[in-house]
Nucleic acid binder design. Structure first.
Lengths: 196, 196
DNA sequence: TTTTTAATTTAACCTTTGTAAAGTTATAAG
DNA sequence: CTTATAACTTTACAAAGGTTAAATTAAAAA
């Protein structure tokens, strides 16, 4: 049985499976065996296509970085809507990637200058955006654009990732649409207060 | 060489070493061998005093929970100072524990109802505190106290834990006192805006 | 068709790691 | 002083997991 041999497709399968696995379990927690199983392939094929675990995760990250269309990153004109916008993007497109960043924050993961570099550019574009809006008078002068951006990241990521905390505090699970709606509203409310 | 035999002291050494190890590497990443080494003890002693890895982490968490004096949790009277206060407490007393909560958020860690329960109580006391201040007219009525509390947690934890993100956005490392000062100031500024 | 190359599988290895079992030595009770 | 208990050490092992090597089979080239 099995399908016709096809290097391209197999490589793709491995990368997709690896993405799931690495994003879900981090580098150290990920298992080559498990990736193979997800991909429905023989474990050894992974070594045929990639040098090893470390090489695989680097390729995986690069591949992912390339796949995230930079179209998501057109921020709203009004800074009061930035937080809710970023929250929405996180919920709809970046959940699994965010989980990976959580691993990255605490687990020892081999460096990937490429992926790191791209993320840095995105984050700094957020800072620049905020700075330009500050110049336009839409953002209070006393607030540092980079710190505002860090605030936005905190508020739109932490509640999604720290399921326990969110539940202990609010009683909701982060995935609950009801929570997401409340949190969206809340972000808008405080944004209005902050940017007035 | 070696000191006089002493069960109490040995048990203590194990718990201390286990705390460091578990907080630093999470449950799955922690190594019994490494704990033994930290404690300067034979690996097998750990099995003499504890049933196994899972039992050990539970005892470790309970032990830690018992050791954190609840004295830290007297919140400032003015809600405008809550964020900076919590940030300060995190920096000065809870860094390693926070790191552990990061593991907990993404890694599969054996449940510890006891530790979980205590944390929940603390967090909910924060919510209650905010609610009472709202009743006193110090907090805008339209802001849900539990969401405010979640916001406080996000803002005082995320930047400390996500070293990469903090650095990519601000150029500072979270441990840098200069960053901590700026962030403290920032927290105060936005608190003033939010609670006015 | 023959040959060569590449995809895929089978088998095996070696290290790490959690844990068990048994042995040894100190301390305390009788 | 003898004996029992508990602290500590030594050995050993089985499972897990990353990696390599060799064998097989399909596809492409000649």
């Amino acid at each position: 049985m099995g399908e016709i041999r096809n290097a391209e497709r197999t490589r793709r399968k491995i990368l997709d499976a690896a993405r799931e696995e690495f994003f879900e379990k981090g580098y150290n927690g990920a298992r080559i065996e498990s990736i193979a199983k997800r991909a429905g392939l023989n474990k050894q094929l992974i070594y045929h296509y990639f040098k090893g675990k470390e090489h695989l995760i680097n390729e995986t990250i690069d591949d992912f970085a390339g796949s995230v269309s930079s179209g998501n990153f057109i921020l709203p004109a009004n800074p009061k809507h930035t937080a809710e916008f970023r929250f929405k993007v996180n919920v709809e497109h970046l959940m699994d990637f965010l989980k990976f960043t959580a691993w990255e924050a605490i687990d020892s993961i081999p460096e990937n200058s490429n992926g790191e570099e791209r993320r840095k550019l995105v984050l700094q574009s957020y800072v620049e955006d905020m700075r330009s809006k500050q110049d336009m008078g839409l953002v209070p002068k006393e607030l540092d654009p980079s710190l505002i951006t860090l605030m936005m990241s905190s508020l739109t990521i932490y509640p999604l990732l720290y399921e326990n905390v969110t539940r202990m505090i609010t009683g909701y699970k982060p995935e609950d649409p009801e929570f997401q709606e409340k949190w969206t509203d809340f972000l808008r409310l405080i944004s209005e207060r902050i940017f007035d």
